[in-house]
Design a protein around this nucleic acid. Structure first.
Lengths: 378, 378
DNA sequence: TTGAAAGCGCTAACAG
DNA sequence: CTGTTAGCGCTTTCAA
């Protein structure tokens, strides 16, 4: 062994290895991408360990608040971390830990107040347990939805699917890969996937019962979008409710989901013999209210109008809207509870269906005594 | 150097390493947590490689659509992946790649329509580029906000801070660690952080100009929450606008941000000598409209009312509300553009301030000819 | 075209 | 109480 040769390299080696740091010849370092404008190397646990003169394990322990570290060491580590502006990589941490502390939510439409509130409820509840929320919007696109769900799930520890549009068979197939999974406004009969829903039927039934108690026998449904499942639910419930009442007549008008849709329906509403209008949702009801007003039809004297959802404005329309309120935030909150249980190895528990609460305001009243009713029936 | 010492370790290694697969004695496997109910091992790239009889590198290539793989091999790999229900771990991928394909958004309040729309705009724009969105709500909590921001940023490749409440000094300090960062409705003079904002002053100025052109000289401001920066902005702009008009009188009433707040202010509005009311936002204006109506005050005959924001309902109030519209979605969309540019090493570009658009509807009209105006002034 | 090997940054079981 | 070591699952030179 040549003296000079060994001198330069050898003695150094053991020492360096001892630190558990830099190999002799730093191997090809892949360039860091991203990182924005500031191109400093970004502190790693290794660098902090080096600076503090301890092992990476110790740094890890300190960063995670392990009590089994000598105070002086801990202090040194913290100082080094501070100095280097060290921020543990959550990605690396997730990989090592096998969990991300993140859950995902897929919604069909972020513009829908229902989903906005679910999002909020879920986000807050998750935050309470130190978890973050990833959101994705499927834009009502079925194909997209499945893809998004799988991808979102892979980035997180659990998934909430709000009003998924995918066909049952596909959902069933997906449900395994997506677990832990919670379904909102959709159930999967026979599966163990927890499902929280709003019982639209009950809401509609309550509305119909209310109208009937006021003497209404001829109803008109302002239907929502044909593709909407909640429209299907509400429509079916309406038909069911009327079917059980022999003397109840139900007409239907294809309408939509917006104020304009309801507004445009006003003329038809006026020309029909219905004494009460059941609108798909509050917006439609509101539009109808507005259109009827313009036509000189007085609500509820001439015709009663009901909405659904109890959006914040429902109480401020003229007249204030009789509608069914649904616990939107609560849905998100409870979704978290279920998900959290699942993530901790618990089991699904019983599914629940939230019962809408009927809010009787001033857009409904007794059936007009002198309406076209008798004339038409004779 | 002891022989045995070297013996124990040296010979075994190379063989094991050679296969690149299973060590002789499978080492302690840490139990997989999470994973929901289904406790199958979860396919990894290694298992797929094994099943397909290729190396992990090849599997990786196939999964990423590299064209340099023999068709037959690729097919085998795909088959194996399919059979094992293999889903590449995005966490591992992120770690290896150094990027997460995720960006974060921090908002003070998810219930605020402004932020809901920003969220939507940002989410959609990000999705266009294959990125996901992480959301967090600070609940108007300044301390929380900074923590959330740092944490969210560490989980993603970039951050959008909407209307951050943190003090300037702290924001300035944070801005480096948070890069790539885009600010919404907040700027950081002298920094390179891109900032997109709504020019509330311009909106207020437009409203005042409109009112003045109708002859109004005595205005009443229904102020928003004291803590709200947008209230401060709007208020300041209002004072400034009135200051330049010597004959303009500005009164102010502490009000709030909700319908109820505006509603409660109606009586005071009636009893004041102001001919026009500038409300903090549309909700307050709407409440005032409603309250005034109940008091028999006719808008705009007796008094004009303006809102701010152009919420969806503004056009449906009675009378429809004159207000200033702001491009909420656009803010999110452009935030993405800036962020994306930054993430790709581009530079910030010029900050922009979106000018609200004045929407003149029917809640404003000429100053009452026979109002209390002359009487009061004499 | 394919595989071996060296990471990415962090955690944790196991010795000392 | 601290360090060593072996992963977590994927990507990417570099050689063959």
């Amino acid at each position: 062994m040549s003296l000079t040769g060994d001198h330069r390299t050898e003695p150094a080696r053991p020492a360096e290895r001892g630190t558990g740091a830099e190999p002799v010849a730093p191997p090809v370092r892949r360039g860091r991408r991203g990182g924005g404008r500031s191109d400093r190397p970004a502190a790693t646990i290794g660098r902090v360990a080096e600076a503090a003169g301890v092992s990476r394990a110790t740094v890890s322990r300190v960063m995670n608040g392990s009590p089994t570290v000598a105070p002086e060491l801990a202090a040194r580590v913290r100082a080094a971390a501070e100095a280097l502006q060290y921020e543990p990589s959550l990605v690396a941490r997730s990989l090592a830990l096998g969990r991300t502390s993140t859950v995902s939510l897929i919604v069909p439409d972020l513009a829908n107040p229902m989903f906005q509130d679910v999002l909020r409820g879920l986000s807050n509840a998750a935050a309470t347990h130190g978890h973050r929320l990833l959101v994705a919007e499927s834009n009502e696109n079925v194909a997209e939805e499945a893809i998004l769900a799988v991808e979102a799930r892979r980035r997180s520890d659990g998934l909430v699917l709000a009003s998924p549009r995918v066909p049952e068979a596909e959902l069933r197939a997906l449900s395994e890969r997506l677990a832990p999974l919670v379904l909102l406004n959709r159930d999967l009969p026979g599966s163990t996937v927890p499902s929280l829903s709003v019982d639209y039927s009950a809401g509609i039934a309550a509305i119909v019962a209310h109208l009937r108690s006021l003497g209404h026998r001829r109803l008109l449904y302002l239907a929502g979008p044909a593709a909407s499942t909640s429209n299907r639910d509400r429509r079916a419930a309406l038909h069911a409710a009327c079917a059980t009442e022999p003397v109840c007549t139900l007409a239907e008008l294809a309408c939509g989901a917006t104020f304009e849709d309801g507004h445009a329906a006003a003329r038809t509403v006026r020309d029909t013999d219905a004494t009460a209008v059941v609108a798909f949702n509050d917006m439609v009801a509101f539009g109808a209210l507005s259109g009827l007003h313009e036509l000189g039809v007085v609500v509820p004297r001439d015709v009663s109008v009901t909405g659904f959802d109890d959006i914040p404005f429902a109480r401020y329309t003229t007249p204030p809207l009789t509608t069914a309120s649904i616990p939107r935030n609560e849905l998100g909150r409870q979704a978290w509870d279920r998900l959290w249980t699942l993530m901790n190895g618990g089991s699904a528990g019983h599914n629940v269906a939230f019962q809408p609460r009927l809010l009787v305001r001033e857009s409904t009243g007794p059936v007009p005594a002198d309406g076209p009713d008798p004339a038409e029936r004779s």
